[in-house]
């Protein structure tokens, strides 16, 4: 009982490969999280609006289309536009080391590439949220 971590798992853009997103959704579910799965072809606006309506703690995006350098910043901007700067944004996909580094420097906290153990992702999310909740970093 008590508080549960709410995670939005989505796939932005023109990318129909959702096996990864579904796998992550199932893994986070099995780690006791409440996962809102939004399906394919989401725009950054839709993702941010869903995050707002669902009051999620985490947004996790799967991008295999190569458009990650455009999509992650746009989702971040749309979240901030709605006062959701506190939401933990993360994701994964086929992303080169250089791009990952660049995105992480812009404040996407952490990205996960192919080969990551799924439990590590769940553990990382939980640790981050426990830290934030302890410090009451979630604004109204």
């Amino acid at each position: 009982m008590g508080r549960r971590i709410r995670v939005l798992v989505g796939k932005p853009g023109l990318d129909g490969h959702d096996r990864g997103a579904k796998t992550i959704a199932a893994v986070l579910r099995d780690h006791g999280m409440e996962v809102i799965y939004t399906g394919l072809h989401q725009t950054p606006e839709m993702i941010a609006e869903t995050a707002l309506q669902e009051d999620v703690d985490v947004v996790g995006l799967s991008i295999l289309s190569g458009a990650h350098m455009t999509l992650f910043p746009r989702v971040r901007a749309e979240l901030e536009k709605r006062g959701l700067g506190h939401v933990l944004l993360t994701g994964g996909g086929i992303i080169s080391k250089e791009d990952m580094q660049a995105l992480e420097e812009h404040g996407y906290v952490q990205l996960f590439g192919p080969g990551t153990a799924t439990d590590d992702i769940a553990d990382w999310i939980r640790e981050e949220m426990v830290k934030r909740w302890k410090n009451e970093e979630i604004p109204l």
Binding site: A26, E34, I36, Y37, M46, E54
Partner: peptide, 29 residues
């Protein structure tokens, strides 16, 4: 919710995604 882990997969929005941007509609899972 899972009776074992307490986790849940909330997938009802998938059927309603075109409503997300409509200001006259609010959807909560």
């Amino acid at each position: 919710s899972s009776p074992f882990t307490g986790g849940a997969l909330l997938g009802d929005r998938i059927r309603m995604e075109e409503r997300t941007q409509d200001k006259g509609v609010y959807i909560r899972s």
